[in-house]
C-alpha cells in the first residue's frame, strides 16, 4: 500500500476511535448548558443547572463525605502500606511471593465480590456483637457499624495493595549503601530512616497516596455494599441517574471532567519541568 494512504488511514482510524471515546462526554458538556430538561434538543443557553447543582445539598454533602473518606483512608493506607513494604523487603523470597499473591486478591477479584464479602463480614460482626452484648447484659461492642467505620475499612482494604505495589519497587531500586553510610556516619537507625530512606521513597509514597485518593473518590461498587445509609459522591450520582432526567448530572460531569483535565495537565507540566531540571543537572 502507498505510504501516504496508509498514514491517512491510520489518522482516520485514530480520529474515529477518539471521537467514540469523547463524543458522549462532549454531548453531556453541551447539554449541561441546555435551557430545557431535554436531553436531545438544544433550546437555549443557561447556567441554571450549575446553579442548582451548587445549591443541591445532597450532592454537596456527598462530595464532602467522599473527600473526607478519601483523605483519611489514603493517609492510613499509605502509612500502613509503606511500613509493610519496608517489612516485606527484608523477608525471604518465599514469604514475599506469598504476600504478593495475597495483595493481588483484592486487585484481581471483581469489585462486586470484594463489596459483598465485606458486607457479609460486617453483618456477621453485627450479629456477633448483638449476641455478645446480650450475653454480657451491657452494650460493650458497638452494634450499628454500617456507615463511617465500614466505609473506611472497605476503602483502606482496597487501597492498601496499591501502596505496596508502588513503594516496593522503589525500595528495591534504592541503594542500600546510602542507609549503611548514614549509619557509619553516626546516624541512629531511626535518624537514618527519616533522613535518608524516607526522602528517597517520597516520590513513590506520594504517588501511592494520590492513587489511593483517586480510587477512593471514584469507587462506587464496594462503597455501595458497605455504606449503610451514607452517600458518597458516586452513590449520590447513582441515585440521580435512577431518576432518569436530571440535567444537573451533565453539569457535574462537565465540572469533573474539567477538574481531571486540569489535574492531568498540571502534573504533566510539573513532570516535564522536573525532567528538564534533571537533564540540566547531568
Amino acid at each position: 500500500m502507498k505510504k501516504k494512504h496508509w498514514r491517512a488511514l491510520q489518522r482516520a482510524y485514530l480520529v474515529m476511535l477518539f471521537s467514540f471515546l469523547y463524543l458522549p462526554i462532549a454531548v453531556m458538556a453541551v447539554f449541561s448548558f441546555n435551557e430545557s430538561k431535554s436531553r436531545s434538543v438544544f433550546t437555549g443557553f443557561t447556567l441554571d443547572w450549575y446553579k442548582s447543582l451548587f445549591s443541591n445539598s445532597m450532592i454537596l454533602d456527598a462530595l464532602a463525605l467522599s473527600l473526607v473518606i478519601a483523605v483519611i483512608s489514603a493517609v492510613i493506607s499509605t502509612v500502613l502500606g509503606t511500613m509493610a513494604a519496608i517489612g516485606i523487603s527484608s523477608m525471604d523470597r518465599r514469604s514475599r511471593l506469598i504476600i504478593s499473591n495475597l495483595s493481588y486478591v483484592p486487585i484481581v477479584n471483581p469489585e462486586i465480590i470484594t463489596g459483598v464479602s465485606l458486607m457479609l463480614l460486617f453483618v456477621a460482626y453485627q450479629s456477633f456483637a448483638a449476641w455478645a452484648n446480650s450475653e454480657m447484659g451491657s452494650a460493650v461492642l458497638p452494634e450499628a457499624i454500617f456507615g463511617w467505620p465500614t466505609l473506611l475499612i472497605a476503602h483502606i482494604s482496597f487501597c492498601l495493595p496499591y501502596v505496596i505495589f508502588n513503594v516496593s519497587p522503589k525500595l528495591r531500586q534504592m541503594d542500600v549503601r546510602l542507609y549503611e553510610a548514614a549509619l557509619d556516619l553516626g546516624c541512629t537507625p531511626k535518624q537514618a530512616f527519616f533522613k535518608v530512606v524516607l526522602p528517597e521513597l517520597m516520590p513513590a509514597i506520594l504517588s501511592a497516596f494520590l492513587i489511593c485518593i483517586t480510587y477512593s473518590i471514584d469507587d462506587f461498587i464496594i462503597s455501595y455494599f458497605t455504606c449503610g445509609t451514607l452517600q458518597t459522591l458516586p452513590i449520590a450520582i447513582y441515585s440521580m441517574t435512577r431518576k432518569k432526567v436530571s440535567p444537573e448530572i451533565n453539569a457535574l460531569s462537565t465540572i469533573m471532567f474539567l477538574a481531571i483535565l486540569a489535574i492531568i495537565l498540571i502534573t504533566n507540566f510539573m513532570d516535564s519541568r522536573q525532567y528538564h531540571k534533571d537533564q540540566q543537572k547531568h
Binding site: S89, I99, N109, L118, L120, S157, I164, F193
Partner: peptide, 23 residues
C-alpha cells in the same frame, strides 16, 4: 537493609481480617 519484618505485621493482620476472612 532495614531488618524490620515486624513492620509488615499490621498490613498482614489487616489483609487477613478484611480480605481473606470475608472471602
Amino acid at each position: 537493609m532495614l531488618q524490620k519484618k515486624s513492620l509488615a505485621g499490621p498490613y498482614l493482620v489487616w489483609m487477613v481480617a478484611f480480605i481473606i476472612a470475608p472471602l
